[in-house]
Amino acid sequence: MTRRLVQPRSHRCPLTSSPDRHRDLCAGHLRGGDAADHRPAQHRPAALTGLGWSLLAILFCSAIPYVVIWVGVRRGRLTDHHIGVREQRRMPLVYGLLSVLVGLAVLVLAGTPRPLIPMVVVMFAVLLIVTAINRVWKPSAHAAVAAGSISVLVIAFGPALVPSLALVALVGWSRLRLGDHTTRQVVAGALAGILLAVPTIVLLS
């Protein structure tokens, strides 16, 4: 009787019968696993890019207008950085409008992501109305900007951000606490911000 020698089976990938093919597939599987493990890192450049666009918008919508006020206080043209005197508010508001308008142009020309544009447009619209009303009355610009900004965020990200409207109340309280506005002026500013922001963001979206 002739005995048949049975060769031991090698452990191969079930998808192939070739040792070379087995090595290639297994190596590819490992590379795919590594890529999957590092997949969240691919979102980092996008997050950094979004942060950069946001900082550019903040530069024109907040930082530059604040520097204008700071310089005015340093030179004695403004009594304080809260600008409690209505007659002193006109030029800082005008410079703020110009800064936001220039920032909007820069963002559009530079190709900023579309969702950021309505936010800046709302900022410009709110400041424009506050500047116009300031000729005869002193609505709270802080309350208007806060209410407009929060309204945009609620519309953009949904009802989950509705509790953030409490920040508007906090800003209004601070204006009353400092004695820079009356309750009517704070409420008027907040209502102006909401009534301008909501239709503007809806139309632009």
Rank of each mutant, 00 (worst) to 15 (best):
L128K: 00
V145T: 07
V100S: 08
N134F: 08
G148P: 05
R135H: 13
P113N: 01
F157M: 11
V162Y: 05
R114H: 11
V122F: 03
A144P: 10
L107T: 08
I150W: 14
V121H: 02
T112H: 13
A105S: 05
P118I: 02
I133T: 04
K138C: 15
I133W: 01
L116M: 08
V120I: 09
V126E: 13
S151Q: 02
P115D: 05
V102A: 14
V100F: 01
A105D: 06
W137T: 07
P113C: 01
S140M: 01
A132L: 14
V130H: 03
A160L: 01
A146E: 08
L165Y: 14
P163Q: 03
G158I: 00
W137V: 13
L104D: 02
P113D: 04
L165C: 13
P139W: 03
K138Q: 11
A146T: 01
G158K: 11
I129H: 06
V162M: 02
I129E: 08
V120E: 03
L104W: 10
V145P: 04
V100Y: 04
V100W: 04
L165F: 15
S151R: 09
V100C: 07
M123N: 15
V122E: 09
T112N: 12
A160S: 02
V106Y: 07
V154G: 04
A156D: 07
A156P: 04
V152E: 12
A147G: 08
V121I: 11
F124A: 02
V152P: 00
A141R: 03
L128T: 14
I155C: 04
I117D: 12
R135P: 03
H142A: 13
V106S: 06
V100L: 09
A125I: 03
A144D: 10
A143K: 14
